[in-house]
Computed example of a mutant assay.
Amino acid sequence: MPSPTTLLPFQPATMSTAAQLAAVSHLVRYSGRARTLYAYQLRQQFAWCEGIALAPLAGIQRTHVDLYTRQLGDGGLMDPRLSP
């Protein structure tokens, strides 16, 4: 079992407590495959934010969302009709 201070099995070292709580609050609504999928997507998004030194909940601007969405599309993970 994780320690009481470990909220997520994938929390980056730079992830704030607020981001951890937001992720847990989001994931608690789901179970089974949906929870697994959303946890995977959060891992990917948080890793992307960490890779560009961006806090997942603070300072995100439309440009960041567009860049992340573009990366998803480039990786084949998004319907091309929805690309910005």
Rank of each mutant, 00 (worst) to 15 (best):
Y40T: 00
Y40G: 06
Y40R: 02
Y40C: 01
Q41N: 12
Q41P: 04
Q41G: 01
Q41E: 07
Q41H: 01
L42I: 02
L42H: 03
L42Q: 00
L42F: 02
L42W: 04
L42D: 01
R43I: 00
R43C: 01
Q44C: 09
Q45C: 08
Q45N: 00
Q45P: 03
Q45R: 04
F46N: 00
A47P: 09
A47H: 11
W48E: 05
W48Y: 14
W48H: 10
W48P: 03
C49M: 06
C49N: 07
C49I: 07
C49K: 00
C49A: 08
E50K: 06
E50D: 15
E50T: 11
G51K: 08
G51E: 11
G51I: 00
G51Y: 10
G51N: 11
I52S: 12
I52V: 15
I52G: 05
A53V: 09
L54C: 10
L54Y: 08
L54T: 08
L54V: 09
A55N: 15
A55S: 13
A55V: 03
A55F: 03
P56S: 13
L57M: 09
L57F: 09
L57C: 02
L57S: 04
L57I: 12
A58I: 10
G59M: 07
G59W: 01
G59S: 10
I60G: 06
I60V: 14
I60W: 08
Q61V: 02
Q61M: 00
R62L: 05
R62C: 10
T63R: 10
H64P: 01
H64E: 09
H64L: 05
V65N: 04
V65A: 10
V65T: 07
V65L: 13
D66T: 06
D66M: 10
D66E: 12
D66A: 07
D66H: 10
L67E: 10
L67T: 08
L67S: 09
L67C: 13
L67N: 11
Y68A: 04
Y68N: 04
Y68S: 05
T69L: 15
T69E: 12
T69G: 07
T69N: 06
R70H: 14
R70K: 14
R70L: 12
R70T: 15
Q71T: 07
Q71S: 14
L72T: 02
L72Y: 00
L72D: 01
L72V: 07
G73E: 12
G73A: 15
G73I: 01
D74C: 09
D74T: 11
D74Q: 14
D74S: 11
D74M: 10
D74W: 05
G75P: 02
G75V: 03
G75A: 15
G76F: 08
G76T: 11
G76W: 06
L77V: 07
L77D: 13
L77I: 01
L77F: 14
M78N: 04
M78S: 13
M78L: 15
D79W: 08
D79I: 08
P80F: 12
P80K: 15
P80H: 13
R81K: 15
R81A: 15
R81V: 06
L82Y: 11
L82W: 11
